[in-house]
């Protein structure tokens, strides 16, 4: 029998650590999603740079959506800070051992690359806006006329997207005091989760995006019915995205399994941490929303869509997004609940 009694009583830390609430999972989810969108956009920019005939609606929508989502994520992160007035200090130094410092600087580089990505296809995708803002259109045209610039923006998207996606996982795994987070697999796990949620977002855009001649009302109707009814003429793109998303989901599921196997077979603290997800208080949410509806069901649905057995809809994309968000919530909350054994064994 070993019994521990302590008089320690610090808020947020005792009796169980709960320093991070909804803000951090939301930030990690949005950061990962934007990372996924950037890698996919970068790949398309490099692949399609000479194909000027196709209207690249997503290539403008996706980076601008990324700017909005990333800003929302950073706002959540800002809400989490306890000493908000000092936030500028993040940019007064670069701490090489701190993943949070790396992340702050990566985020600063991400914004100009996203805006450049949106400008690259501005004229083709948004001709009305281009006519209204000739200066912006001029800059966009100057960029587009130089293939080297397009390549550079494409590669910058991929490099920064990968950095951002991995960083969101490393941020937690660097905090080795919490056994659940003490795994280098969190980096690739969050990267592939980011890629799957990024592909799911693009998938949703193919269903709800406004056509050139549609009015705003049509767009709203399309948004509402898009998740149950496929949009005409976009099957090819949707099927490609479903294929890509299934690839990402398969890798994500494999990494998640490896992560749990590794943790279960490690120290007693690691075993207890894995048990929090596998059989403990977070098990129901983990199995139902992360593994079940977040990974396995979308894999099956998108597999059937790709094989033309069912009509492509937004449902699997929606499930992937919910699963990605819940994955962050579960890992952040369960991670805080995991701890080293408190007994000293004197």
């Amino acid at each position: 029998m070993t019994e521990l009694f302590t008089l320690k009583h610090n808020p947020l830390v005792d009796p169980a650590m709960h320093i991070w609430a909804w803000q951090i999972p939301v930030y990690l989810f949005l950061g990962g999603l934007v990372a996924g969108l950037m890698i996919l956009s970068g790949y398309h920019i490099i692949r399609d740079r000479y194909d000027t005939d196709r209207p690249h609606g997503h290539y403008v929508t996706a980076p601008m959506l990324s700017v909005a989502l990333l800003s929302l994520g950073m706002l959540a992160l800002f809400f989490d800070l306890e000493h908000k007035i000092e936030v500028w200090r993040l940019y007064m130094t670069f701490e090489v051992t701190s993943p949070m410092s790396w992340g702050s600087w990566i985020l600063l580089l991400v914004y100009p690359v996203l805006i450049a990505s949106a400008l690259l296809n501005f004229q083709e995708a948004q001709p009305r806006l281009a006519a209204r803002y000739p200066t912006v259109a001029g800059v966009a045209e100057a960029m587009r006329s130089r293939p080297g610039v397009a390549s550079l923006i494409g590669f910058a998207n991929i490099a920064l997207g990968a950095g951002l996606g991995i960083y969101t996982g490393i941020l937690l795994s660097s905090l080795a005091a919490r056994p659940l987070w003490s795994s280098a697999l969190l980096g690739p796990l969050f990267l592939f989760s980011g890629l799957s949620t990024g592909a799911a977002t693009l998938h949703m855009l193919t269903h709800i995006e406004k056509g050139e001649d549609n009015s705003y009302g049509d767009f709203l109707v399309a948004s509402m019915v898009g998740w149950i009814r496929p949009k005409h003429g976009e099957h090819e793109g949707a099927v490609k995205l479903a294929h890509a998303d299934n690839g990402f989901l398969t890798i994500e599921l494999s990494i998640l399994m490896l992560f749990l196997i590794n943790l279960s077979g490690s120290s007693a603290a690691g075993h207890d941490a894995a048990a929090l997800l596998l059989t403990g208080p977070y098990a129901a949410v983990f199995w139902v929303f992360v593994v079940g509806s977040g990974l396995v069901i979308p894999l099956i649905l998108q597999g059937l869509q790709a094989a033309n057995r069912i009509r492509p809809t937004m449902i699997p994309a929606l499930l992937v997004l919910v699963g990605g968000l819940v994955l962050r919530f579960v890992l952040v909350y369960a991670g805080q609940a995991s701890h080293w054994p408190r007994i000293a064994g004197f």
Binding site: K84, E86, A177
Partner: peptide, 12 residues
Amino acid sequence: CIGCKACLGACP
């Protein structure tokens, strides 16, 4: 200190 709480999470 910006109060990010990373150090609280890092301390075993």
